[in-house]
Simulated scan of single mutants.
Amino acid sequence: MTSVVTVIGDVRDSRSAPDRQQLHDVLTLALDEVSREVPGRHALRVTAGDEFQGTYVRLGEALAGVFALRLRLSPEVGVRFGIGRGDVTVLDEATGTQDGPGWWSARAAIDAVKAAEQETGWSATRTAYRSSQESDPVQEAVNAALVCQDLLVDSWDARTWSIVRGIMQGRTHSDIASELGISRQAVQQRRSAGLPMVLAAADRLASLP
């Protein structure tokens, strides 16, 4: 057994997608890009239908991978995530089939997200973390941060996501504005609305062991 951080994700409302093949292609491309940007122990890959999985050495890497994937897919493709930590056993090397407490924790986390989405006032929930350890000192703090992150980014429209992507790529306000067909001042106004704070919080989560 090896202790890892596991990620299970799935696409929200995928059955209502007008073109499921296109959705699959967009998802797999994003998974490949994120796996190169934030390398894990096992790359993110589609496992069945609209569900995908991957593993990481550190919790921070998993959180960075999840945020990077949302950055590529939002708001057109909504995704939920369950992040777990615990021992994992490889049952079949040829197929990559795995099992163990690490995966059970990730499954419990994504089930918690699905349940929370149905609760009044919690519809923005997209991410949760569960550890198989009896006492994980960071679990509650990480989940508190994820609740705040989910709430904040849920309010972002397509233009805000585009601006955030531009900022993450290190592009100038003028370049972002030109691409979006808006003024430089409009980009600055959105940036001034707290975007750097959200990105700084994501960076701090990415540093977790």
Rank of each mutant, 00 (worst) to 15 (best):
T6P: 10
T6Q: 00
S14N: 08
S14Q: 02
A17Y: 10
A17M: 09
D19L: 08
Q21K: 03
Q22M: 08
H24L: 06
T28M: 13
L29E: 08
A30L: 13
L31M: 01
V34R: 06
V34A: 11
V34E: 14
G40R: 13
R41M: 03
R45Q: 10
T47D: 00
A48G: 12
E51D: 04
Q53I: 06
G54I: 02
G54A: 14
G60P: 01
G60A: 02
A62R: 11
L63Q: 05
L63S: 03
L63I: 00
A64C: 15
A64T: 13
G65L: 05
V66A: 04
V66T: 15
L69W: 00
R70E: 11
L71Y: 01
L71D: 03
R72K: 09
R72M: 07
P75V: 12
V79M: 05
V79W: 11
R80P: 15
R80K: 07
G82I: 09
I83S: 08
I83Q: 10
I83T: 14
G84E: 11
G86D: 15
T89Q: 13
T89I: 11
L91S: 01
L91I: 00
D92A: 00
E93K: 09
G96V: 06
P101E: 08
W103M: 13
W104K: 15
A106L: 05
A106C: 10
R107A: 07
A109E: 10
D111P: 07
A112C: 13
K114E: 02
K114F: 08
E117D: 10
Q118V: 11
E119R: 06
E119H: 14
T120W: 01
S123N: 14
A124P: 04
A124C: 02
T125M: 00
R126G: 02
R126Q: 10
R126F: 04
Y129W: 13
Y129N: 06
S131M: 04
S135N: 11
P137C: 14
P137G: 07
A144L: 11
L146S: 00
Q149V: 12
D150Q: 09
D150G: 00
W156Y: 08
W156C: 12
R159L: 09
W161P: 07
W161M: 00
S162W: 06
R165F: 12
G166L: 12
R171E: 09
H173C: 03
D175M: 13
I176Q: 14
S178Q: 15
S178P: 03
E179V: 09
E179L: 12
E179P: 15
I182D: 15
S183A: 14
R184N: 03
R184S: 06
Q189T: 11
S192H: 08
S192W: 00
A193L: 11
A193N: 15
M197I: 06
L199P: 10
A201P: 13
A201H: 11
D203M: 12
R204F: 03
L205I: 08
A206G: 05
P209L: 09
